[in-house]
Design a protein around this nucleic acid. Structure first.
Lengths: 214, 214
DNA sequence: GTCTATAGATCGATAGAC
DNA sequence: GTCTATCGATCTATAGAC
């Protein structure tokens, strides 16, 4: 049954990739977990590289329209509150990724972090080529909230924000384990995002950097 | 000449590891770049895993005492300004890593990002085991600046801050290239850190997260 | 300490039968 | 579309001569 084989491979691959990284996950490991034959990966996807792209594509194709819709619907306000509201509006689209897999949202963010580190800029180009419209909508929405922020500062702060997110997810297994044992409560991806939003909003809307003090 | 061989291997390894990651860098690549024999890595370091540790150790052994000294010397103040001053005080220690290699500071931060992603928690344990005292000093300094911040919130925000830093460096090649072509000015690691400090300080000192708005 | 040569394992990819 | 069998490349690590 080809239909199941293909998605079974995708499911197994995204899990293993998010846990171990792309290089450290072999085709044999993927096909064993998916309970399909080794050769079927190359039959359905052509190569390991194409499989990695297909894993990302499944998530982005689901996520990006919903992000675009959320940006269109929100009433943008200036300042920290505006940024914070915008970021909060991105949480529901992110959470719909949980319909793709059991922990789809967390898996996706981990994959993002892996991708930025391991694919040598391929991921960045892939995103900008195939989903550039949505990214640009998001950037201009942020710019609308922070009209006084110089373009260069906006550039850096967006990447700092991105880093906060993907890093905390990439090491989220360890982090949530520590958090749960230290604070004795369950931690899920939605809670991480709620912690993250005020941090990022304050950071992005903060006053400009001063010359370094002596 | 064993002395040169060993450091030549470390120099070549740290560069290639920071650029490509650990898994994607082979011993052959390292020994070729270092212009030493393939077998010399195992003679001097025992294994690839030990080589990776040795690369990190050289940086941490240099950095940690200077960080500890900076924390001891600074007069801690409460609030955003206190956090910002503390973070600025960490920049000079970080910049002394440039004496270890040509772009030592940037290399180190990239290695950190790689390590957190690729070593499956080994790096975290290595840091806490060998340099736990310094890390705990830093944490309590931050806590002193933000006494009103709940322990759990502090936990999350420190990891968000860490993520901003290592992520922006991990993709720093691409970022600085974009930044230089878009803003027509040279970008160095010190400038990235100066952009980062206000972002992180504001994010860490910001007010607590509110229940998600409807 | 440095070298050559190679063991031993694992990888991605594919040919070809069914 | 699925399977077995295998190729050819690559890797880390090591044995042993010098």
């Amino acid at each position: 049954m080809a239909r199941h084989t293909k998605t079974d491979i995708l499911d197994a691959a995204e899990f293993l990739f998010s846990q171990q990284g792309f290089t450290q996950t072999s085709m044999r490991e993927i096909t064993t977990k998916a309970e399909v034959n080794l050769a079927s990966v190359n039959y359905h996807f052509g190569s390991k590289k194409n499989l990695i792209q297909a894993v990302f594509k499944r998530y982005f194709d689901h996520l990006m329209p919903k992000v675009e819709q959320s940006i269109d619907e929100i009433v943008l306000k200036e300042g920290v509150e505006g940024i914070e509201a915008l970021l909060y509006a991105l949480i529901p689209p992110m959470l719909t990724l949980n319909t793709l897999s059991q922990h789809g949202t967390a898996t996706f963010v981990k994959l993002l972090g892996r991708g930025y580190n391991e694919t040598q800029g391929h991921l960045r180009r892939f995103i900008m080529n195939d989903y550039g419209t949505c990214i640009r909508s998001l950037v201009s929405a942020i710019r609308h909230c922070l009209p006084q922020l110089p373009e260069e500062e906006l550039f850096w702060r967006m990447h700092f924000a991105m880093g906060s997110f993907v890093f905390s997810m990439a090491s989220s297994q360890a982090l949530t384990e520590i958090a749960e044992s230290d604070f004795h409560k369950h931690v899920d991806i939605e809670e991480v995002m709620r912690h993250l939003v005020p941090f990022v909003a304050q950071g992005m809307a903060g006053r400009l950097s001063q010359p370094i003090p002596a």
